[in-house]
Amino acid sequence: MKRIVFNGCWAGKNVVGVSRYAYNILRELDKLLDNSKDKYCVNLLVPANANEHELCFKNIVVVKKGQYTGPVSRIIWEQIIFPIYVKKTKGIGVDLTLSIPVRGVKYIAIHDCIYESFPENYKGHEIHRAFYIWRVKKVTAQENVQIITVSNESRKEIVKYYGVAPNRITVIGNGWEHMKEIHPDESVFEKCMIDIGKPYFFALGSKYRHKNLAWIITAAQTNPEYTFVLTGNDSFSNESEELQKNSPDNVIFTGFVSDEEMKALMLHCLALIQPSLHEGFGIPPLEALSLGKKIIVSKASCLPEIYEDSAIYIDPNKSDVDMDALMQEHTGDARSVLEKHSWKKSAYEMLKLIGS
């Protein structure tokens, strides 16, 4: 029987970003194991302080080891506790979370190469960036380690920056089915003083320059008849803080919102905007498509690869646009994109790869 050990360092934290990728693939993988109990023994190694209610698996065995409470304990857990457990159990180590253990893994996910392509994102955090890149180079130099990534565009970047042979890289993308389980919380409109009766565009922002927050601000200035609602972490960069300070009145910054609040905002918007200069996959437009919403995305990075003709495309370097004209552009049926990218399909591809 083949033992597979997944890195569960994300357990006990908010399931967002790469944690969402790991969590949802494992949930679907757990279902697939109903028919493979005699072939695989799958463990999820998590810190001792992990949240139990998030780990309700039928076939995947959750094992608790060590603490994960701060920067030092995080490094110890990821770089020592996880690899030791994999070695001790003679398992196949799998990391889908970007913690990048330099030992003890056979399969590791690199979602994008943002540390390489946008070093300015990490101004003031150069040591953090250098430590991450060192780990990636250390792991990718090991010929027996297989790389998982989320788009063909990211695959090309991994080849470019880390010299990994293309045949060592497998593309396994994101999914959208988690949106069906999220119940919209419409109290967000009162909380953030958003008039639900007025038409608005919605975007999920962040402090990083590659998310291209400036595009939203300029588009809002050019289209004052519409509101632009931007959610994201409160800890914006200095550049973004300046944009926020000088943004027009029709831009609303909500700060961080829950999944339930995000779904409510997405359900009532005219369209979701993702003007990114760079993405590994770009999951918010997929979530919006699953709700039947229009999406406006950059004709850049992996976004045309993922969204094909289901999106309205923009030039991320040209934000002086007429939103009414954009919304009149024809798009294709979103169903083909939703069928192509799902957690169920990704879990199947993951088991096929690791279990072979």
Rank of each mutant, 00 (worst) to 15 (best):
N121V: 02
V136A: 12
K123P: 00
K160L: 10
E120L: 09
V159D: 01
K160Q: 15
S117Q: 12
V136P: 01
G173M: 07
P119M: 11
R103C: 10
S151R: 03
G104A: 08
V164Q: 07
W134H: 14
N174D: 15
P166S: 06
I110H: 01
A109Y: 01
Y122P: 02
H128D: 13
I114P: 00
R135P: 03
G124R: 09
T149M: 01
Q142I: 13
Y162S: 08
I108C: 07
R129Q: 10
S154F: 06
K137A: 05
E126K: 14
I147V: 12
N152Q: 15
I114D: 05
H128G: 08
Y107H: 11
S154Y: 11
T149C: 07
I108W: 02
V164M: 04
S117D: 12
V145D: 09
A141E: 15
E143Q: 14
I127A: 13
N174M: 13
S117F: 08
E126H: 11
I108V: 13
S154P: 03
F131T: 15
S154T: 09
I158G: 02
I172R: 03
V105N: 05
K160V: 10
V139F: 00
R168E: 00
S154K: 05
Y161E: 00
E157Q: 13
G175H: 05
V171Y: 02
V136R: 00
R155V: 06
Y161N: 02
G104W: 00
T140F: 07
G175K: 04
R155D: 10
G124M: 11
W134R: 13
E120T: 10
W134Q: 10
H111T: 08
V150H: 00
Q142S: 09
K156N: 11
V136N: 10
I148K: 01
E126N: 11
Q142F: 02
V139M: 02
G163F: 07
Q146Y: 11
T170F: 00
N144P: 01
D112M: 05
V105E: 11
